[in-house]
Design a protein around this nucleic acid. Sequence first.
RNA 1: CGGGGUGUGGCUCAGGUGGCAGAGCGUCGGCUUCGGGAGCCGAAGGUCAGGGGUUCAAGUCCCCUCACCCCGACCA
Length: 570
Amino acid sequence: MRWSKYFWYTSKEDPADAEAPSHKLLIKGGFIKQVSAGIYEFTPPGVRVLRKIENIVRKEMDRSGAQEVLLTVLNPAELWRETGRWDLYGRELFTLKDRNGREYCLGPTHEEEITDLVRSYVNSYRQLPLILYQIQVKFRDEKRPRFGLIRGREFIMKDAYSFDADEMSAMISYESVKFAYHRIFKKLRLDTLMVEASVGTIGGISSHEFVVLTDYGEARVAYCESCGYAANAEIVKLSKSEEEKEEERPLREVATPGTDTIEKLSSYLGVPARKIIKAVLYVVDGKDFVMFMIRGDRNVDENKVEAVLGTENFRLAEDKEVWDLLKTKKGFIGPFNLPPSIKVYWDNSTYGIKNAVIAFNKPDYHYINANPGRDFSYGDFVDVCEVEEGDPCPKCGSSLKVRRGLEVGHIFLLGTRYSEPMRAYYKDPQGQERPIIMGCYGIGISRCISAIVEQYHDEKGIKWPTTVAPFELDIICVNPSDPEQKEMAERLYMLAQEYGIETIYDDRDESPGFKFADADLCGFPYRIVVGKKVKEGKVELQSRHTGERWDVDIDKAVEEVKRLIEEDKK
RNA sequence: CGGGGUGUGGCUCAGGUGGCAGAGCGUCGGCUUCGGGAGCCGAAGGUCAGGGGUUCAAGUCCCCUCACCCCGACCA
């Protein structure tokens, strides 16, 4: 490709609206352009990267025995009503009506539609197992789109679905996709960590996420370096702490004016936060109150709360609700003299605490030296505590590491969550009708682009791995007005194409510095610079990844690049 | 859904106390230049996010709306 004819425009300035390196570099490098929040267009080079990733995914999915389909973007509401998700999915669903008032959504995922497709053809165990997949645009009206392609409202996803006669077979399908995923991420050169993930409220059997460790991820993952345990932080179990061995001091009621946060209370009393028991009050289904007692230095993980409550329909109580209910204000809520309708749970972190600070619904007062058993009773222990660095590994007890992670893949053994309500049944060898066991498997294709850039960049720009680079080779002619240089650059460009190297030839009428800067920004793995040394029969070769540059004989240059590219692709 | 921030040429931004709409980059024309985002000369390019208000006069002050970015989805 001749750059002078190519629809590719980079920018010298950092975009004002971007924060994450991948977001900045993809816009600056002219790979994507924002249309509105979480909605991006791909330019020709952006599409080249996208297609490369798609093709790697496609190849490995095919190799695992999965078959490609293409479902629809417009999903009729009826299908979603069959599973109840028309309402459950909530405001994240983009919905619309046709001219006759018939309702549709823009597919955010395709369990319903694929199940509908499969049930219309599959009747017998002889037709199973089956894995179908597609690569398609998805729509989700995210609460907060961010970081460019990392969390978009419109994005490209590979979604696969497995259909099996029994659980054993379903596990095999699950394992085969898991295996394919490992190969895919290896080919994409993404360092991923496979972590155990939440099976959620829908009663799945098994679930794993593939995450890239980066500060611009939305997930928190915990892992143990000594035993290899790794999980999404929201499912890491924290058990009861050791009982403290301290002499119980006499209970006292003390004035603690204005201490409406743990920090203020802690410094006012000169007591460490870990000796405070705080109350967190939630409203469930808009009417019921549930109180969680947790240690002052710890935070509630609302994902765990969801698991305890069995619903995601809850929120923190507001000031006026606290006042109406307990005649107190936030900061002074405690588990004393409560209306019987309020359910109180104690987080495991509060177990065995001695001489604690605790509020008792009297504004601007706290108890100090409160002790369980003597001054208050506790029970109904649950685990709603957010995991932090250094917490014990649930497997081996060593210290956990906690990092932000970007979820690029998720595999999920669903069971009969969709086949049952949608009556996707097959007949077993005995002629019995049984629901198909399903699994679903996603890879965020467009998100992978960002993940790769997050992992491969420096202050100058992107450093694409050769397997996904928009072009493998950039040929730069330093001074095109020098006929000798110009002719040589043209010749090398032709030759590179004969060698099957994906080449962009920077024949733009720009200064050398301009072209070098673009080459760094756009991240081509290899660069041939045709300059003054043409007279000596040499050109310069550069590697974007190692930063190395060296002179080679003109007739060997393309061959050398070809060899390096082949090496990279292994 | 809360909280904060920002909206001025294609891009990045400047425009005290209200008084002719600005710069750099980019673009177009010309000349020069050619190994790390070149130089000089000339030119085009604006509904100052939108609406309402105050005023002789609003990019600037007030109100409303919208869009985008960031933080939180958070503690008692």
